[in-house]
Design a protein around this nucleic acid. Structure first.
Lengths: 129, 129
DNA sequence: TAACTGTATTATTTATATTAATACAGTTAG
DNA sequence: CTAACTGTATTAATATAAATAATACAGTTA
């Protein structure tokens, strides 16, 4: 299904997450499609099942997939939930950053101006290590 | 000069940095005023001189102080430089966060609206661990 | 029941961050 | 130039945290 670089400084489970997120976001894996089982994937990639499980657990926590004990793990149908959670996180980060900037005495208008100059990004970019 | 909590989970050198930043930002320590020497402060606080030095090194990197080998360490006169560097860092973070948010399809106006609702913070807050 | 599925707990290993020991080099007063 | 101060660089030891692995448990299905 994909390849893993065990020599990379990037943790295996993160590499896994990234690739799976990619597949899900790009709709290569459709809603409710079953993911390979933790053991199957572990065997295929020759890594410990727990590492797969960690990736799956994180992906579930972030709303990308859902798992049913005994049945399997599947692509989450509600993409909006992903956005919801992610947005919540990003909003907090945004507030923190902007808070710090404002603390430095930069007027709010300046911050807004900065954002206004930013371009709406193109979709579909990967960027691996 | 100040106290350190060696039982805290916050590293000693960070505690030190925070307190010194506080003194500098609040102008308790004036421009070009000499800081206690690494050894003097180390002795006073009963901690290793290298820990002090690490704090000083970081503070210098961030523009809060400057050090002259053989002479001592002093409060940096150009406060703007602090803001400059810090702003540069924050700006990058801001762009990253906003970039991610825009990537989720949130329109720019929404982001701006979010910022507009934020309050200009009060000055002078510490917040220790 | 057998062979699959995910999960939880704990231990082990590895990486990173923090602190310390020590030696070096510049500055200045006498 | 020496003595006593200053900051700095290198390296080692220690502490903390992160990543991975071993193992046992529990649900599902044919």
């Amino acid at each position: 299904m994909f390849t893993i670089d065990s020599r990379s400084r990037v943790p295996i489970y993160e590499q896994l997450m990234k690739k799976l997120q990619e597949l899900i976001i790009r709709d290569v894996m459709k809603e409710d499609e079953q993911l390979p089982s933790v053991r199957a994937l572990a065997q295929q990639l020759t890594i410990n099942p727990n590492t797969i499980q960690k990736a799956y657990r994180e992906l579930e926590r972030e709303g990308y997939i859902y798992s049913i004990p005994g049945k399997g793990s599947f692509v989450s149908p509600v993409k909006n939930k992903i956005d919801k959670e992610r947005m919540e996180m990003l909003r907090k980060e945004l507030e923190r950053i902007v808070g710090e900037i404002l603390y430095l005495g930069v007027p709010k208008d300046e911050v807004i101006k900065l954002i206004e100059t930013m371009e709406e990004p193109e979709r579909g970019e990967s960027g691996n290590d």
